[in-house]
Amino acid sequence: MESSSPKERSWFQHHFASPGQQLSAAKLGMWLFLAQEVLFFSGIFVAYGIYRTHHPEAFSIGSHLLDWKLGGLNTVVLLFSSLTAALAVRSSRIGDTRATSRYLVLTIICACIFLVVKYFEYSAKFSHGLLPGKFFDPHDAGDLPYHVRSFFGIYFVATGVHGLHVLIGIGYFIFLWVRNNQGRFSPEYNTPIDMGALYWHLVDLIWIYLFPLLYLID
């Protein structure tokens, strides 16, 4: 077969016994990285847990100052991008390079929409002085409990770090898109797309929790 010539299998690293072993190693490394990501975000969730149990009323008020419709829109956008990422992996596995390209572009577009919506949310909060911690200076929200600033501290750190992950995801998916157009991926080798999608699903996973915890407090 043509595909087994040395040039065609340039993706195969010589220190692995077989392509299968190379794939398993990549997968183990990726899952370890995702585990690390879960633990990284767990610090934010624990801070959220402590502050919310201590200041439930401030969290409720802070949450009502967010626009759940924009948060919900972003949830749908991110879920859809997860779908397109999964479909990109699928089409690369069956060798449909054009479909892969299309799904990668759709994923990138969704990620950009997410960040644009986030930008509008942030600028609305900034203009109302709803900033974290000591920068908290609400202009027209009336009298707010002291710890509403703690809610916004956690809101900005959680969504900011999550947004950074989205930004990194966009960069990586552009890289994947370019590589895919160069014909680097095949049913034999599509590990980078597979790993990129895993990362993207984790970013989606974090948002699945952030949305109700930040936007939908009764």
């Binding site: 899952w31 995702l34 879960v38 999608a197 699903h201």
Partner: peptide, 26 residues
């Protein structure tokens, strides 16, 4: 998302353990 999109169902058991372990420790 984890079971279908991330193919956890077909993943090596050890990889699933790594990920679920991180959730346990969180």
């Amino acid at each position: 998302v984890v079971v279908v999109f991330m193919h956890m169902a077909h993943e090596a058991r050890f990889n699933a353990l790594v990920f679920l372990g991180s959730l346990l420790f969180a």
